[in-house]
């Protein structure tokens, strides 16, 4: 199967590969996987006190489309507010990367990873607020 130029570009020069401290209260971590292909994807966001995503990192073990989808997602996430980030849909990723129908699930995985990172960040914030004396 032929990959689009954009997929190859992200695959060869993935943006924002790496790790953020998952114990940092400003960091939200999403870890998702696709059982049918054995892919695993970790996406992390670092959110400022003003609610803006100042950094995003990913690590994906999977096919070129899965790597490109998560790489693109981290690029888009930086500078967005949490609410804006939640608006990112898999279809936008698939369209940007020209993913063929059989690879749409890779963009779904990236959307799941974003949502799960945001949910992790929110639950940390909620836990912090629930602490007595704060």
């Amino acid at each position: 199967m032929a990959y689009s130029e954009k997929v190859i570009e992200h695959y060869e020069n993935p943006r924002n590969v790496g790790t953020l401290d998952k114990n940092d209260e400003h960091v939200g971590t999403g870890l998702v996987g696709a059982p049918a292909c054995g892919d695993v994807m970790r996406l992390q966001i670092k959110v400022s006190d003003a609610g803006v995503i100042e950094d995003a990192k990913f690590k994906t073990f999977g096919c070129g489309s899965a790597i490109a989808s998560s790489s693109l997602a981290t690029e888009w996430l930086k500078g967005k507010t949490i609410d804006e980030a939640e608006q990112i849909k898999n279809s936008m990723i698939a369209e940007e990367l020209h993913l063929p129908p059989v690879k749409i699930h890779c963009s779904v995985l990236a959307e799941d990873a974003i949502k799960s990172a945001i949910a992790d960040f929110r639950s940390k914030q909620a836990a912090k607020k629930a602490l007595p004396g704060q």
Partner: peptide, 23 residues
């Protein structure tokens, strides 16, 4: 049914472990 949309999501423990082993 088997395949991408039909199967249950992998457990967080398995994902964590596979991520660590792959790293």
């Amino acid at each position: 049914p088997v395949g991408e949309t039909a199967e249950p999501k992998p457990s967080p423990d398995l994902l964590m472990e596979m991520m660590e082993r792959r790293e």
